[in-house]
Amino acid sequence: MSYGLYDHHRRYRRRVWARVGKAALWLILLGGVAGFSYLVGVEQLKSREGSMQEELAAMIAAKDKAERRAQQLQQIAQTQEVRANELEIRLQREVPGGELAKLTELMARKLAEGVNPERMAFVIEQTSNPRSCVRPETKRFVLPTPIYKGANTQVAFADGTIIVTGEGVPARNEGGNPEAWYDPTKPVKIRFTDAAGKVQETEGVLPLTHKLITADKEVRLTVGAGARSFVEVTGEICRFP
């Protein structure tokens, strides 16, 4: 009887310990699963944090880039505004308005119609308000050449305050030899000397025109070819201003 009772108690303890072992095994298994889940969660959090930091850095870089671009656009806008103001000022200064615009349009139309621009310039040059002038006077002199530098090679206007002289290219005879008189088909040099000794010179094929201001007078001189060796100078003297 005592043997059977002992065996019963031993089997009972075995079952108890088996249950305890199973419970402990389950606890260990659950602890492992929980630990693994915790580690996985930590790694996910770390990965998520790293991704968020990268995203934040990218957003900050994009913000800085946008601010720099905005500053560049602002500078470009300011530069364009300054250029626009300069162009507006230049346009107002250079594009004619009022009566000048009408005259510009008229000249453009006349040029398109084939009017000679030199003739138009001459007409404009001769156009002025009424002036107080004396009767034009014409004088002539022998135009010097490298071969002839004799007498009667200058004339005076405005009470002797303006001296006109010059130099021409010698004409050539049929044999090609130079003559003493100038060739009116070649350019000449005409010099104008005022009372102060100041010399002005104009050059070209005759006729030539020149204007001088001396004291209270405006002197307009036209130099044209005359008889052989001579040039004729017409002087118009007007009050100035």
Rank of each mutant, 00 (worst) to 15 (best):
E67D: 12
E88F: 10
P178H: 03
G204L: 01
L91D: 15
E174N: 10
A196P: 05
S51M: 05
T79R: 13
P136V: 02
G166A: 03
C133E: 12
I237C: 02
Q154A: 12
A225L: 04
R239N: 11
R19V: 10
V16E: 14
V205T: 07
G168F: 02
M1H: 14
V40D: 08
I89E: 15
I28K: 03
F192V: 03
H8M: 11
V231P: 03
A62W: 07
G197V: 02
R239P: 02
R135P: 12
G197R: 00
E99L: 06
I89W: 12
E174G: 09
R135C: 06
L39G: 08
K211H: 05
A171F: 05
A108K: 10
N85D: 13
G21W: 11
A215V: 14
E236W: 03
E86M: 11
K46N: 14
I163Y: 02
V233I: 06
V142L: 10
T153Y: 02
P241E: 14
M1I: 10
C133I: 08
G31M: 03
V231H: 00
R109E: 06
L111V: 02
K149W: 14
L73E: 05
I76T: 12
N177P: 05
A84P: 09
D64L: 09
M59Y: 12
V219S: 03
R172H: 07
A70W: 04
L103A: 13
K22P: 00
K65D: 05
L221A: 01
T138R: 12
E232P: 05
P184D: 03
E137Q: 14
Y6Q: 15
G114V: 02
K102V: 12
V223C: 01
A58T: 13
G166S: 04
A121P: 05
H8R: 15
A151P: 14
L29M: 11
V199D: 04
E203R: 08
T234L: 02
T222F: 11
A77W: 06
N129K: 15
C133Q: 06
G197S: 04
T214W: 04
S2H: 10
T79E: 12
D216W: 09
Y3D: 15
V219P: 00
G235D: 01
P146V: 15
S51L: 11
F240P: 01
A66P: 08
E55M: 07
I213L: 15
V223Y: 07
P184Q: 03
R220Q: 08
L212S: 00
G97H: 13
E86R: 10
A156L: 14
E43S: 04
M1Q: 15
S128W: 10
K186W: 01
D64P: 01
L111E: 08
V164Q: 01
K63E: 15
K102C: 05
E125C: 04
V188C: 07
L212D: 01
P144I: 00
G166Q: 01
E137D: 13
E203A: 08
E118G: 01
I237A: 02
R14L: 11
R48G: 09
F192P: 02
G235A: 01
T202L: 07
F141R: 00
A215M: 07
K217V: 00
K110R: 11
G204E: 02
N173T: 10
E99S: 09
A195W: 05
D64I: 06
